[in-house]
Every structure is written in structure tokens, then in C-alpha cells.
């Protein structure tokens, strides 16, 4: 995972629950999986990923090669799951108001900044913690655990 990257935007609305995200947003657009390209980013409104904690929805986005999800707000379980799967999920208030579908966004995880390369508009978000970046860099929680479990484990 890169800490700084660019990607083409696909834009979605508010309150999209994980049932409708399943199968790469199939509940909203059954053809989306044929349009989206690896490295693209999703921009959504409030409450992205609300609902079930089932992981097939976030996995389908990761497996489609989506580089990041940026939304006004993201359900906690969904946000954690995406990061634990190695896909940056970013809560960024105002992001949906600065982009249109097809624009290119530049995202910097460490400084917490997103910039629309089409019109220069930018927004900020809470920079990722070292822990979250470490998990993302390893490609998710499972590979992260495999590489660091020995140090992590306390004498149980």
C-alpha cells in the first residue's frame, strides 16, 4: 500500500448499507464491477457501510482493486474491517462536495489531505495512526499479525 496515491473517482450517495455494497456495489449498480478499474477510489456520503458486519461486502471492494474509500462518515465496523483487510477507509467531511464522478483525487494518508486534481479543491481528514498505517503497509491485519504476533503475545 502506498501512503500517497491518485485515483479516479466513482461517486455514491448517503446511507449505503453493506448488503447493497456486496458484490462490488451490486445493490446500487449491478454493472459496476465491469466499469471499475484497479486503483480507482470510491467517494460516498454519510454512513457508508452501515449495517451487517459481514465481510463479503468490504472484501468485494478490496478484490476489485479499489485503492481507497472516502466518505463523509463510515460505519465503525466497516471502517475497521476495510483497514484490517488492507484497504484505506477515510472519513473526510466535505469530500463529496469537492468532486464529481470521473475526477482524479490525490490522497495522502500521513498528512491527512485529499486534493481534487481536476479543480484544485482540497479537504483534510484525521491522519492515520501509526498502528493503522502499519496494518495497511503489511496488507491487512492477518499478514500484520503473522509478522508481529510473536512480539505482541503476552504470556498466556
Amino acid at each position: 500500500m502506498k501512503k500517497n496515491f491518485k485515483g479516479k473517482v466513482w461517486k455514491f450517495g448517503d446511507c449505503i448499507d453493506s448488503g447493497n455494497i456486496k458484490g462490488v456495489m451490486a445493490g446500487i449498480d449491478p454493472e459496476f464491477h465491469t466499469k471499475v478499474q484497479p486503483g480507482d477510489v470510491i467517494v460516498a456520503g454519510i454512513n457508508f457501510g452501515m449495517g451487517s458486519s459481514s465481510e463479503d461486502a468490504p472484501r468485494s471492494l478490496r478484490d476489485a482493486g479499489i485503492a481507497a474509500i472516502l466518505a463523509e462518515s463510515i460505519s465503525n465496523i466497516y471502517l475497521r474491517t476495510l483497514i484490517n483487510l488492507g484497504l484505506p477507509a477515510i472519513e473526510c467531511p466535505g469530500v463529496s462536495s469537492i468532486v464529481e464522478e470521473g475526477h482524479e483525487l490525490e490522497v495522502d494518508l500521513e498528512s491527512g489531505r485529499v486534493r481534487n486534481l481536476a479543480n484544485g479543491a482540497s479537504r483534510t481528514f484525521a491522519p492515520f495512526s501509526d498502528h493503522a498505517i502499519a496494518i495497511l503497509e503489511k496488507g491487512g491485519l492477518i499478514p500484520y499479525l503473522k509478522s508481529s504476533l510473536a512480539n505482541n503475545r503476552e504470556g498466556t
Binding site: S53, T81, N84, I142, N152
Partner: peptide, 21 residues
Amino acid sequence: ATGIGFTETVGVLATGKIWLK
């Protein structure tokens, strides 16, 4: 009490911990 995902559940089984803000 809070919900976690599948991957994180595997993590808890291994380490007994979660990261949390």
C-alpha cells in the same frame, strides 16, 4: 461492547486484543 468483523475476530483469537480509537 462492540461488533467486529471476520478478520478482526481471527486477530482476537490469536492475540486477545483489538486496536481501538
